[in-house]
């Protein structure tokens, strides 16, 4: 028993899901189905790929063509699928560790190619599946099970990283800002090129407990309070900028898309041969 949208796009027989109480993965996954529904995509034509981690379990619950691959490699598998059949709508779901640590190389190169894949990062700043180790997005001084004395690393800004590497669409929102999230997902999927939506997410079980962030509700409240649109941020007085995180659209441009360019090569060669 659940909503029409969940009945339509989820594999009900596999629910309830494995995620912890308060984990925002369900919120983000449902928002993705809202975007797909509003875009009117053909369910048979949608491919959702993932790597390994908590968020990477999402495809198993989604009623599309779904592929749960190896750790970090989701974008490389997705690249093969998209190039082999460019008509498919290919979406990658990844966690921060999956896509920016072990899969970081695949992220920057998929972005560089501008291949038409939408990457959605569930960024909870921690490795959840393995029990709370620090990730490339864990803030400096925050704690993880492998940073018991405080993290000395500097975190990646995934949305900016993708934009710098060549993504033609890149934005960041949070698991709290559901309406904005649905809009960003729609814009990202509609973009003919590599798109990144980083969703600031929460892990009450590991990140929250290690960092005394409070309950899931309190962590959601923090997303609501601490994230501010980058335009609004500029207008804030200096003293109010402290502790704020930026969200918004960082890049939205049009450039030639990889599979379309490859098709041009095919067409030129095949046209050339026919003329011979």
């Amino acid at each position: 028993m659940t909503s029409e949208i969940v009945q339509k796009y989820f594999r009900i027989e596999n629910l309830p899901h494995i995620w912890c109480p308060g984990c925002s993965n369900g919120v983000v996954t449902r928002a993705l189905t809202m975007a797909i529904d509003e875009l009117g995509l053909d369910q048979d034509n949608v491919v959702v790929v993932s790597g390994i981690g908590c968020s990477s379990r999402a495809p198993g619950y989604l009623d599309f063509n779904t592929l749960h691959t190896t750790h970090g490699r989701g974008l490389a598998f997705a690249t093969g699928i998209k190039l082999a059949n460019p008509k498919l709508d290919v979406i990658l779901i990844a966690g921060d560790g999956d896509v920016s640590a072990i899969g970081g190389n695949h992220l920057i190169h998929a972005a560089r190619r501008n291949i038409d894949i939408t990457t959605i990062v569930f960024n909870n700043n921690i490795y959840g599946m393995t029990g709370g180790q620090y990730s490339p997005t864990t803030p400096t001084a925050a704690k993880g099970t492998t940073a018991p004395h405080g993290n000395i690393d500097k975190p990646f800004d995934i949305a900016q990283l993708a934009a710098a590497a060549g993504a033609t669409y890149s934005s960041r929102t949070t698991a709290y800002h559901v309406n904005q999230m649905v809009k960003y997902f729609k814009d990202a999927i509609s973009n003919k090129g590599f798109s990144m939506v980083e969703v600031a997410s929460i892990c009450p079980t590991y990140y929250g407990r290690k960092n005394k962030s409070g309950s899931g509700v309190q962590m959601m409240q923090a997303l609501k309070n601490d994230f501010i649109d980058k335009m609004a941020y500029e207008k804030l007085p200096e003293e109010k900028k402290e502790g704020k995180h930026l969200m918004g659209v960082f890049k939205n441009i049009t450039l030639p898309e990889y599979t379309a360019e490859y098709q041009r090569v095919i067409d030129a060669l095949q046209g050339g041969e026919n003329n011979e």
């Binding site: 490699r73 490389a76 598998f77 690249t79 699928i81 190039l83 082999a84 059949n85 190389n105 095949q270």
Partner: peptide
């Protein structure tokens, strides 16, 4: 590409086999 097939040089060896598996799945 002459026969409508696809070739891609990936960013590393791991991506090479991963993309090839993706091609097969498609």
């Amino acid at each position: 590409p002459r026969i409508g097939g696809k070739f891609i040089q990936m960013e590393d060896e791991i991506a090479g086999i991963a993309a090839a598996i993706g091609g097969s799945i498609a």
